[in-house]
Amino acid sequence: MSTEAPFRARTEHVPAPSRPSKPRRGGSSRRPAHWWIPWAFAAPGLAFFALTTGYPLVRSLQISFYQWSVLPGTDSPFVGFDNYVRALGDPQFWTSVVNAGAYLLMTVPATIAVSLVFAVLLHRPMPARTLFRVLYYIPVVTSWVVVSLLFKYLFSSDNGAVNWFLQDVLHAVSEPVPWLEQRWTALAAVSMLGIWKNLGWCIVVFLAALGGVQQDLYEAAALDGANAWAKFANVTFPGIRGTVIFVAIVQIIGAFNVFPSILLMTNGGPAGSTEVPLTYMYKQAFSFLDFGFASAMSFVMAIIISAVSYLQYRITREKKEARR
């Protein structure tokens, strides 16, 4: 609190901006007084990153061009782009990419939409709000092993709760659905877990962002007679658009890297039909010791993820520009 006092006094005379302000690109204030100032701020982080992630990434890229032998000092033949050619021509790899894509479509839009709704609901004062916020965070902190196991039971074909609900309560199906014994139903079940587990995370990020939306904008909108939806569309959403993009990109990366839930619920089966990139890479690397192939697949995946993230970013940005 003490750090804020002088800041407030100093900024009282500054007129509040009418829109959530966007930094001006290329303005004089964005040019550092000395060229080294931004580098000095970024240096510790970049050094850490370069050493512990950048260097292993480069090593991993190098490995992807070899038939790499795990034991140091033994022969690792250079194979050029062979591992990449193998990955691109491997139907199981593409099955895994398609599965991750399907998982992404089933989880990311739903997670973001639902979490946004609950974040808005939880943002305004209500009875026991802190308690609710904690409860919504609980799935995020519950161990993957435990929740994957429980979801497996929920979706079990013989006496799982989901089948009981569909069959005995809704009478929607005449016999139990073998959820985890077929590709798409299994992916749907894993997606349900994905949404359930990630909701709380998104809500926490959105709540932090909602705290930054200026209250006077709501008041202005209320004076204009805006209803709840208009307030959301014209004030809330534009105010947190950057955060929505951030959450979407993190969720997209997360969806392509879905791992423990698949491993524990289906282990990629039956017959590899629910394999996702990470379970497949893990198997190639640590079960089959084919590290070159696994690395090559991971770089192909990185390109795919970058492309999808960029596409998503473009779409969100263009919408904003169209609205102006």
Binding site: F49, T53, G54, Y55, P56, L57, R59, S60, I63, V70, V250, I253, F256, N257, F259, L278, M281, Y282, A285, F291, A294, S295, S298, F299, M301, A302, I305, S306, S309
Partner: peptide, 13 residues
Amino acid sequence: AGLMIPGIVIIVP
């Protein structure tokens, strides 16, 4: 890019 490469791939280096 560091976010997009799964940790398990660079764990050996």
